[in-house]
Amino acid sequence: MPFSTTAPVPCIRLRGLRTEFPIPGRRGETTRVLHDIDLEIPEGRLTAVVGPSGSGKSTLLLCTAGLERATAGSVEILGTDVRSLSPRKQAAFRSENIGFVFQEYNLVSSLTVEDNIALPARLAGRRVPRARVEDAMARLGIAKHARRRPDRLSGGERQRVAVARVVANQPRIVFADEPTGALDLKSGHVVLDWLQALPAQGSTVLMVTHDPHAAARADQVVVMGSGRVHAVIPGGDSHAVGDAVLAAQSADEAGGEES
């Protein structure tokens, strides 16, 4: 049975998503990272994916975004089966509809802050109005860094530029992989505030995190363990999220001992 959310319209629909990676040094042998995952992510919500290290949460996000190749299954985003698209169409789809915020290395090091913010639109062959870029920079408090390159910014400022890029380009879906993983508490809160505010702008946010407090700010939380979805719980309670992660980890360990 697919895990689904309370909202009626799924924005992302995963069916039987399976991913296997070759084991380095062992010719022909693979390890399964995702086990036939069925999942539906609602539109216009912030969904967090949590789980212990190695549970496959980042792989799930990257396969959904089309950045990692799944072995089997289907990924439907906004009604389009993205796995069936050619690389050119996938790229076009990404630049039109998807924004990313990673833990690090979000920015093109040779471009200035404002150029980085305008990049997705340029790649899609259109221009983001300058006012919108300036507005996004002002809202995230990085306007004074507009002409700077990323190597002149702190980690928190770089992450805010990544969020400003999403705010200015208004993609329909935002994938965030450990967006606060390398930040101090205050910078982390700023980034989370903005990710939480994006659904009001019409974006769907899928965020991977290992932090129960960050996950609790989501509308719903997908708890993963050993490449499987253990539970989908509502957000709001960091203790409940933490307990769910520990339960998933215990279940994994028990399963590991049995096998």
């Binding site: 050119r88 990404r94 630049s95 290395y105 093109v108 997705p120 790649l123």
Partner: peptide
């Protein structure tokens, strides 16, 4: 290596093959 990382960001941001 530096180019590879920048190219990866550009690719992820939606650069068409060949860009």
């Amino acid at each position: 290596r530096e180019r590879a990382r920048d190219s990866a960001v550009v690719t992820v941001a939606g650069a068409r093959p060949g860009v």
